[in-house]
Amino acid sequence: EIRVRVEKDPELGFSISGGVGGRGNPFRPDDDGIFVTRVQPEGPASKLLQPGDKIIQANGYSFINIEHGQAVSLLKTFQNTVELIIVREV
């Protein structure tokens, strides 16, 4: 597990896919977790996150067994800083 802090400027600078009942993700199709799919170059998350990172927690909210829409809404709700716990396959 890796813990990262992303400062919104003005957005977080990454996209996610997956989630329960979602269209899945390109990295682990059998896993309904939330995965980072795109990281904006030079964006707030560019040095912190990589495509394929699985987000398991954001600001204390579990991202395990969460629906895609709910994950997106939560990330939009947070002000300024988001603390993520991620799992990265090496």
Rank of each mutant, 00 (worst) to 15 (best):
Glu1Phe: 06
Glu1Trp: 08
Glu1Ser: 07
Glu1Val: 06
Ile2Val: 05
Ile2Tyr: 09
Ile2Asp: 02
Ile2Gly: 02
Ile2His: 07
Ile2Ala: 01
Ile2Lys: 08
Arg3Asn: 12
Arg3Tyr: 15
Arg3Val: 12
Val4Met: 05
Val4Phe: 05
Arg5Met: 12
Arg5Lys: 13
Arg5Gln: 10
Val6Trp: 05
Val6Phe: 13
Val6Thr: 02
Val6Leu: 13
Val6Gln: 00
Glu7Pro: 12
Glu7Gly: 07
Glu7Thr: 15
Lys8Ile: 12
Lys8Trp: 06
Asp9Glu: 08
Pro10Glu: 05
Pro10Gln: 10
Glu11Ile: 04
Glu11Thr: 07
Glu11Trp: 07
Glu11His: 07
Leu12Thr: 04
Leu12Glu: 05
Phe14Met: 01
Ser15Asn: 15
Ile16Met: 06
Ile16Asn: 00
Ile16Phe: 10
Ile16Tyr: 05
Ser17Arg: 06
Ser17Gly: 13
Ser17Val: 12
Ser17Lys: 04
Ser17Tyr: 02
Gly18Met: 02
Gly18Cys: 05
Gly18Trp: 00
Gly19Asp: 04
Val20Pro: 08
Val20Asn: 08
Val20Gly: 06
Val20Ala: 09
Gly21Trp: 06
Gly21Arg: 09
Gly22Asn: 12
Gly22Ser: 13
Gly22Lys: 07
Gly22Val: 07
Gly22Asp: 08
Arg23Glu: 10
Arg23Tyr: 07
Arg23Asn: 13
Arg23Thr: 15
Gly24Ala: 13
Gly24Cys: 07
Gly24Asn: 10
Gly24Pro: 11
Asn25Met: 09
Asn25Tyr: 07
Asn25Thr: 08
Asn25Lys: 05
Pro26His: 07
Pro26Asn: 10
Phe27Ile: 09
Phe27Glu: 10
Arg28Glu: 10
Pro29Trp: 08
Pro29Asp: 14
Pro29Asn: 14
Asp30Ala: 11
Asp31Thr: 06
Asp31Ser: 09
Asp31Ala: 05
Asp32Tyr: 08
Asp32Asn: 10
Gly33Thr: 03
Ile34Gln: 02
Ile34Trp: 00
Ile34Thr: 03
Ile34Asp: 02
Val36Ala: 02
Val36Trp: 04
Val36Phe: 02
Val36Arg: 00
Val36Pro: 00
Val36Thr: 01
Thr37Ile: 09
Thr37Asp: 14
Arg38Leu: 11
Arg38Glu: 15
Val39His: 01
Val39Ser: 00
Val39Ala: 02
Gln40Phe: 15
Gln40Gly: 09
Pro41Val: 08
Pro41Cys: 07
Glu42Arg: 11
Glu42Met: 10
Gly43Leu: 05
Pro44Leu: 05
Pro44Thr: 09
Ala45Thr: 11
Ser46Arg: 07
Ser46Thr: 07
Lys47Met: 12
Lys47Pro: 09
Lys47Phe: 11
Leu49Pro: 00
Leu49Lys: 01
Gln50Leu: 14
Gln50Gly: 03
Gln50Pro: 02
Pro51Arg: 12
Pro51Phe: 06
Pro51Lys: 11
Pro51Asn: 05
Pro51Tyr: 05
Gly52Val: 01
Gly52Trp: 05
Gly52Ala: 05
Asp53Glu: 02
Asp53Ile: 01
Asp53Gly: 01
Lys54Asn: 03
Lys54Pro: 00
Lys54Cys: 05
Ile55Cys: 02
Ile55Val: 07
Ile55Thr: 01
Gln57Met: 11
Gln57Lys: 12
Ala58Ser: 03
Gly60Glu: 13
Gly60Gln: 11
Tyr61Gly: 01
Tyr61Leu: 12
Tyr61Ala: 08
Ser62Phe: 03
Ser62Ile: 04
Ser62Arg: 06
Phe63Gly: 01
Phe63Asp: 00
Phe63Tyr: 04
Phe63Leu: 07
Phe63Val: 00
Ile64Ser: 12
Ile64Lys: 13
Asn65Asp: 13
Asn65Leu: 04
Asn65Gln: 12
Asn65Lys: 10
Ile66Lys: 05
Ile66Cys: 06
Ile66Trp: 03
Glu67Asn: 14
His68Phe: 15
His68Thr: 08
His68Asn: 07
His68Ile: 09
Gly69Leu: 09
Gly69Thr: 14
Gln70Thr: 12
Gln70Asp: 12
Ala71Asn: 00
Val72Trp: 10
Val72Ala: 14
Val72Tyr: 10
Val72Met: 14
Val72Leu: 14
Ser73Met: 11
Ser73Ile: 06
Ser73Thr: 15
Leu74Gln: 07
Leu74Trp: 06
Leu74Pro: 01
Leu75His: 02
Lys76Ala: 13
Lys76Tyr: 08
Lys76Arg: 12
Lys76Trp: 05
Thr77Gln: 14
Thr77Glu: 13
Phe78Met: 14
Phe78Cys: 08
Phe78Tyr: 07
Phe78Asn: 09
Gln79Trp: 05
Gln79Glu: 15
Gln79Val: 13
Gln79Gly: 09
Gln79Tyr: 07
Asn80Asp: 14
Asn80Cys: 09
Asn80Gln: 15
Thr81Ser: 13
Thr81Asp: 10
Thr81Phe: 11
Val82Gly: 01
Val82Glu: 00
Val82Gln: 03
Glu83Asn: 12
Glu83Asp: 14
Glu83Thr: 08
Glu83Val: 04
Leu84Asp: 01
Ile85Met: 12
Ile85Ala: 10
Ile85Thr: 14
Ile85Glu: 15
Ile86Tyr: 03
Ile86Thr: 01
Ile86Arg: 02
Val87Gly: 14
Val87Ser: 14
Val87Glu: 11
Val87Leu: 11
Val87Trp: 12
Arg88Pro: 04
Arg88Thr: 00
Arg88Asp: 04
Glu89Arg: 07
Glu89Leu: 07
Glu89Lys: 08
Glu89Gln: 10
Val90Leu: 12
Val90Phe: 13
Val90His: 15
